[in-house]
């Protein structure tokens, strides 16, 4: 189990004559991912969801807050001793084209982390025969739905995008991770192949007990990974709504969540649009607004209080999910299928 409390991260961007500008990427984010569970982070690009994934995979450091992995607070460890913990969190990149080394065959790509794993197990007294690496590579490729005989001797450029993404997942599995962080893992894959990758991630949850942290802008895919999962809606580095996937989608209470869900195209003919769709007001330079509620400049329901005070995550108004809004109101914004009678 992995938890985070009050994770903050600020990037300083170099700019103009007046010196740097501080850009907060994460403003005190709390989360918890159960073993075998699913958590999805949704939001627009630049909202901080990718940064969070990278922090969890140990690729980026955070400024303050505490991450605990299996009950061990990371701040209590030296960077070197932290590494094995972060290795239990593996990142599946968005771009399957740059995620694999073009000069190495799939066999080489998989055997490097596997031989590392073999050495670790030897040290732990559970030594494996030499043939284990090859066997395990085949086993993992079969697990992700690929034909090892075909894939192993090939270079990445000889595989399709969907196959590459499966190889990337197999590589992440070489170190027996507890959490897979899938950052927009299907956005660069052909539409007809996306569901296959999503189904694989879902299947890995069931078969290996791997938890999946799903980072996406496409809420429907988050729903496919696990209807039992937790949904986090992030706006400009702050979690504005958090709750069970189905609850947040069917009855969102934060205006930002409502705007985000309202923006999802409706398949007219198959679906009828939600009745209370929310269209955010367009504000120039909303990103410079730092007082009060972060969403206030674009919020159609804002009041004077929203401009001066920042709401915090909670169950105000007795909603089943947590939210950070002074005026929570459940609205039906999502399109519903046309019933065939």
């Amino acid at each position: 189990m992995i938890t985070g409390t009050g994770i903050t991260k600020t990037f300083s961007r170099r700019g103009g004559v007046l010196g740097g500008r501080e850009v907060p990427a994460l403003r005190g984010v709390d989360f918890a991912i159960e073993k075998g569970g699913a958590a999805s982070f949704i939001g627009e690009s630049g909202c901080g969801k990718t940064t969070l994934g990278r922090i969890l995979a140990g690729l980026e450091s955070h400024d303050s807050g505490e991450i605990t992995i299996d009950g061990v607070p990371m701040s209590s460890l030296t960077p070197r001793r932290r590494q094995p913990y972060f290795r239990r969190v593996q990142l599946v990149h968005q771009d399957p084209y740059s995620a694999l080394n073009p000069t190495r065959t799939i066999h080489q790509t998989l055997s490097a982390p596997l031989s590392l794993r073999a050495r670790q197990m030897e040290r732990a007294g559970t030594g494996r025969p030499r043939s284990w690496i090859g066997e395990r590579a085949e086993e993992l490729l079969s697990l992700v739905g690929l034909d090892p005989g075909y894939v192993l001797p090939r270079y990445p450029h000889q595989l399709s995008g969907g196959m590459r993404q499966r190889v990337v997942i197999a590589r992440a599995l070489t170190v027996d991770p507890e959490v897979l962080v899938a950052d927009e893992a299907v956005s660069m894959i052909d539409v007809s192949l996306r569901l296959g990758i999503l189904a694989l991630l879902k299947d890995l949850r069931d078969r290996l007990g791997v938890s999946v942290l799903f980072i996406t802008h496409d809420v429907a895919t988050a729903r496919y990974i696990g209807t039992d999962g937790e949904l986090y809606v992030i706006y400009r580095g702050q979690v504005v709504e958090r709750g069970p996937v189905e609850t947040v989608i069917s009855a969102p209470v934060h205006p930002y969540t409502q705007a985000l869900l309202s923006a999802i195209p409706v398949l007219h003919g198959l679906e009828t649009p939600g009745e209370q769709r929310v269209v955010p007001t367009e504000a120039l330079d909303a990103s410079r607004h730092d007082r009060g509620c972060l969403f206030a400049p674009r919020c159609p329901f804002r009041t004077a209080r929203c401009e001066s005070e920042r709401p915090v995550l909670g169950h105000d108004g007795g909603t089943p999910q947590e939210h950070a809004c002074f005026h929570p109101e459940a609205r039906t914004v999502v399109a519903v299928p046309v019933s065939h009678s």
Binding site: G58, H93, A99, P113, L116, V168
Partner: peptide, 17 residues
């Protein structure tokens, strides 16, 4: 900055590798 180098770091592969 490429994905495969980040992945190698994430997998804990040695700097030499």
């Amino acid at each position: 900055e490429r994905g495969f180098i980040e992945a190698a770091r994430g997998l804990g592969l040695s700097t030499g590798h």
